[in-house]
Computed example of a mutant assay.
Amino acid sequence: MRLALVQAPAAPGDPQENLRRGLALCEDAKADGADLVVFPELWQTGYAPCPTDAAGEQRWRDLATSVHAPWLGAFREAARSLGLAVVTTYMEAHGTGLSNAAAVIDAAGRVVDVYRKVHVCDFLWERVFTPGRRFAAATVETVAGPLRIGVIICFDREQPEACRALALDGAELIVCPNASLLCDDRIGQVRARAFENSVAVAVANYPLPRMNGRSCLFDGRAVHQNRPRDHTIALADGRSRLVLADLDLTALREYRTGSIWGAAHRRPAAYASLTQGVAR
């Protein structure tokens, strides 16, 4: 299957302009043969930070939408009409506040999952978001067939438990909408998450000058015929573009049946401290 990772600028604080750009990018992705398109973090608001003054914060909060609102509805219709699965991102309003969210839309235009960022950057302005409470994979129908997808968002990538939880729930592909500077260490994190879980991991990031691009896909097939294999499928530069990457699902699934990584040799009884938390 072909992934299209959106590495394009968004308009800060302008959901309608970002909708226009987003729908055009979906059309471009389909024209390039994509089966799935993934947007960077908080595409709807252009990852606009929360203002510090009361009036500005209220205007910012008023940008929030919901899964049933027209903004998401337009992406659902685009997915249905194009036959394209879409992972789009937005600021979600709900009963307990606001969330940093991603909607997983299948090629029939159905929302099959809404993921809410668990590891919000509460050391920055993202403290206004309510953290999500789960990591769960969903089965997504694409033109290339059904695929088990998990979602993490940006800082989730820096917590290894996030991808491990999704892998244990059967994720074959983990997508990561992102809004940060992807240094070599962070690219290394993505590669490691793919390697250690025998799962493909894709990141969609904003381009220069705001962020530095480097959208990427690692397919997790790190060994071939008992020899190390470079499982880098795509690693972009900083330019604005659609990053296209082809994922061989048949080969990945075959690899996972015999992999020594992932869940094959875990010893969960020894990991109890991971669920007990640590002092901050």
Results as ranks from 00 to 15, higher is better:
T96L: 12
I233G: 05
V190H: 04
A167E: 09
V38I: 13
D219C: 12
A78H: 01
G83I: 01
Q189K: 08
A24I: 04
L72T: 06
D185S: 11
D185W: 04
Q58R: 15
A171D: 04
Q225V: 15
A24F: 00
N205C: 10
Q16I: 06
S66P: 03
N100G: 00
L36F: 10
D156N: 04
W261D: 14
V243Q: 03
T52G: 10
P146E: 02
L84V: 07
V201E: 09
V104K: 03
L19K: 02
Q189I: 14
R134P: 00
C183D: 10
L242A: 13
L173I: 13
K30L: 08
L124Q: 08
R157Y: 12
V151P: 05
H119S: 12
V111T: 15
A138Q: 13
A138D: 09
D237S: 12
R229I: 08
D35L: 04
R256P: 07
L168F: 08
Q159M: 14
A137E: 03
H119R: 13
C163Q: 06
G73P: 00
A48D: 10
V120E: 00
H224M: 09
R241Q: 15
E158H: 13
A263N: 12
Y206C: 11
P131S: 02
V140L: 10
T232N: 02
C163N: 06
N197I: 06
F135I: 05
D113K: 11
H231D: 10
G109Y: 13
D184K: 04
V190D: 03
A10H: 07
Y90M: 01
V190N: 02
G56M: 05
P15C: 11
L147A: 12
A264V: 13
T275I: 00
A234H: 05
C216A: 07
E254H: 11
T139S: 12
P49C: 06
E196S: 13
I152C: 09
Y115E: 08
V111S: 05
V87T: 00
A69G: 01
P207E: 14
T250C: 11
G73W: 11
R267F: 15
V87P: 00
G145S: 05
V67I: 14
